[in-house]
Write a protein that binds this DNA or RNA. Structure first.
Lengths: 334, 334
DNA sequence: CTGAAAGCGCTAACAA
DNA sequence: TTGTTAGCGCTTTCAG
C-alpha cells in the first residue's frame, strides 16, 4: 500500500523556503543562493525526500520513459543479438537518465504507448503494424536492425547484405570452392539479407552453390546441429561452412569434433556476430562482426534527441559489418 | 517534442458529458448508462485519446510499475537463469497489466525507487544495501533466488542445498566414487549452497572429495572449459562430473568430445538448471531442475498483492529442485 | 535571487 | 446515474 510520501512541501517547510526554491534546487537551476541550496539539501536528506516522478512528468509535460520492444520469437533471449541490444539500450538509458520499459511482443497486441516518451523497435517481424501506429501517433520512434523503406520512420540498420558478401568473398579468397551455408531465420530481414549477400558474393566469385549446400536454419543451435550432421555426412562434403550466427557456428564446430572432423584442418567455419563466447572454444572463431551494441546505444541517443525536440529529420542509416579473422578458416588445399 | 495530447477534456466535450463520466468509462466503473458509454467510446476512438498515465498515477496515488533489479555481473545475460527470470517476470506483468522497468545494478548506485510501486530483486549479491533501503522505505519488495535471514523481507528462494545433494546422491547411487564438481559463482548464495549441498551429499554417501576434484567456476562456459581440460588431463580422472549449471555441463561435454572422451561411456556428466538447450546436444543432459520461471511468475503475483494491500504478511519460501534423468550419466563399471 | 499562483490531466469524494 | 469541486506533487510563468 502506498506509504505516505514526503512531498516537496515538507521539504520546503523544513528548509524554510518556498516549494519553488526546492524545485529549483532539485532541478539544479543555477539562480539559487548557496545558503538555500544547503538548507534544501539538508532537508532532502533528513526527510529522505524523493520527488514524485509522476508529478514531475505531469507538470513538466515531459516523459523520459522509452520503450524497447522486441519480437518474442522463441529463443530470442538465447541470441547474442538480443542480449546486446538490451545491454546497449540499457546502458545508454542509464547514462541519459531515461527509464526503459521492456516489452516483448508477438505483434498481435497493440503496445500501450500512452505513457512512453518514445519507442525503440528492435527488429520488425510480425509487428509492422505497431510501428505504423506509433508513427501515425506522432510518437518519436526508431527502428533498429532493420532498413525500413515503406514507412517514413527513423532507423539504424546493419548492412547484412554486405556482411554476407564479406563471408563469401573471404572463403572464396582462401581457395574454397565447396562452400555451404546455414541461414538464420529467413523471415527476418537480417537473415534474408545475410543469405542474399552470401549468394551474391558467391556469384561474384563465380562459384556455384548447389541447393544441398544451403540449409535453412533459424539461429538456434538445434538447427545448426541438424545442418552440420547433414553436411558432414554428405559424400561430397563442403570444405567451408558459413554459419549465419556465431552460436550456430559454435554448434557446427562442436558437432565436427564429435564426428572426428577437425576445424579448420578438415573444414573451415565462419560465423556472424562476433560473440565473445566464440573466443574460448577449441579454435578461435573467424566471423563477421556487426556493431550491435553500438547500434543500440546510438539509437537511444538519437531517440532522446527526437523526444527533446533537438532533432527533426529522420535518421536513416545502415552500419557496416567487418571481417574478424581468427583461426577457424584456412586456405583450401587438396 | 511532445505531441499535443488529447486530454480527457476533449473527449468529454465531444461526447457531451462531464470529464468524470469519461473517467468512469475509462476505469470501467459500472454506474454509467449505456448511451454515455457508447458516446464516450466513440469519442475516444475518434480522437485517439490515450489517458495520461502520469496524471492517473498522480491523481490516484497508485503505481503499477514494478522494478526488476538484477546484479550486473558479466555474462549475466548469457545465463539461462537470468533469461528465465526476465521471461517469467515479464510474462506475469503482462497478464496483470503491470509495467516493468528493468534495472541492472552493480550494487553501488542506489536505485531510483521513487516511481516504483514495488521491486523484485533477482538475487542479491553486492546490493544488499538496496534491499535494506527499499525495506526501510516501506516499499513493497520481494527477493527471489535467495533465502534472506537477516532482513525482514519477503523472498522466494530455491533450495539449492537440496539440489546439490540430489546430484551427489544420484551419482553415488550409480556407483561412482571419483566424482568431481565445477562450482558456480561462490559469491552467490545459489552457487555456495549448491556446492555445500553437494559436499554434504557426498559426505552422507561416505565419499571423499579431494580438493583437486573441486574446480571453482563462475557459471561461464570459459571456466567450464578450463575445468574440463584440467579434469580430463588428470592421471586419476574422475568418472563423473557435477557441473553446477547446464551451460557449464554442455561445455564439459564439448571438451570431452574434442579430447576423444565419450559421454556417458567414459565419464558421466550432470548439470543444474534444466536448460532446454541441453536437449539437443550429442547426448541428452541429466540435470537438476530448478523452477525459475515459476518462481519469477509467482514473485510478481505476490508483489502485486502486496502493492494492492491484499497481503500483509511476508512470504518466505524456498522451492524444491528435482532430478531430471536423461542420458549423460550411467552406472560406473570398472 | 525568490515566492505566489496557475495549471499539468486525472481521480475521488460529495452532492444533486 | 451524473456533474461539481477539490486536490495529487510538481514545474513554470510572472512579479517582486
Amino acid at each position: 500500500m502506498a506509504r505516505k510520501q514526503v512531498s516537496i512541501k515538507d521539504v520546503a517547510r523544513r528548509a524554510k523556503v518556498s516549494i519553488t526554491t526546492v524545485s529549483r534546487v532539485i532541478n539544479k537551476v543555477p539562480t539559487v543562493n548557496k545558503k538555500n541550496i544547503e538548507r534544501v539539501e539538508e532537508a532532502v536528506l533528513a526527510l529522505k525526500y524523493r520527488p514524485n516522478i509522476s508529478a514531475q512528468r505531469l507538470a513538466s509535460g515531459s516523459n523520459n520513459t522509452i520503450g524497447l520492444v522486441m519480437p518474442g520469437y522463441p529463443g530470442i533471449f538465447h541470441s547474442f543479438f538480443a542480449v546486446e541490444i538490451i545491454r546497449g539500450v540499457g546502458h545508454a538509458c542509464e547514462s541519459l537518465h531515461l527509464d526503459m520499459v521492456f516489452h516483448i511482443t508477438d505483434g498481435a497486441s497493440p503496445i500501450s504507448v500512452s505513457y512512453l516518451g518514445g519507442i525503440i523497435f528492435a527488429d520488425v517481424i510480425e509487428n509492422r503494424r505497431q510501428v505504423e501506429d506509433a508513427v501515425a501517433d506522432g510518437l518519436p520512434c526508431l527502428v533498429i536492425n532493420n532498413v525500413i523503406q515503406d514507412i517514413d520512420v527513423s532507423y539504424i540498420g546493419i548492412n547484412n547484405l554486405k556482411g554476407g558478401k564479406i563471408a563469401a568473398e573471404y572463403l572464396a579468397s582462401l581457395g574454397h570452392k565447396r562452400i555451404a551455408t546455414i541461414t538464420g531465420n529467413l523471415k527476418t530481414q537480417a537473415g534474408f539479407d545475410r543469405f542474399d549477400g552470401f549468394m551474391k558474393g558467391m556469384d561474384d566469385a563465380k562459384l556455384e552453390v548447389p541447393k544441398e549446400y544451403v540449409f535453412r536454419g533459424d539461429y538456434s543451435r538445434r538447427s545448426a546441429r541438424q545442418a552440420a550432421e547433414y553436411f558432414f555426412s554428405m559424400e561430397n562434403r563442403p570444405t567451408a561452412i558459413f554459419a549465419q550466427s556465431d552460436d550456430m557456428a559454435l554448434e557446427v564446430i562442436a558437432v565436427a569434433y564429435e564426428m572426428g572432423i577437425r576445424v579448420p584442418e578438415d573444414v573451415s567455419v565462419i560465423g556472424f556476430d562476433d560473440n565473445p563466447q566464440a573466443l574460448y572454444g577449441p579454435v578461435g572463431l573467424t566471423t563477421v562482426r556487426q556493431p550491435v551494441f553500438e547500434m543500440a546505444e546510438k539509437s537511444v541517443r538519437v531517440l532522446h534527441e527526437m523526444i527533446s525536440g533537438k532533432r527533426e529529420e529522420k535518421l536513416k542509416i545502415a552500419l557496416d559489418p567487418e571481417l574478424v579473422v581468427r583461426d577457424s578458416c584456412i586456405s583450401f588445399r587438396t
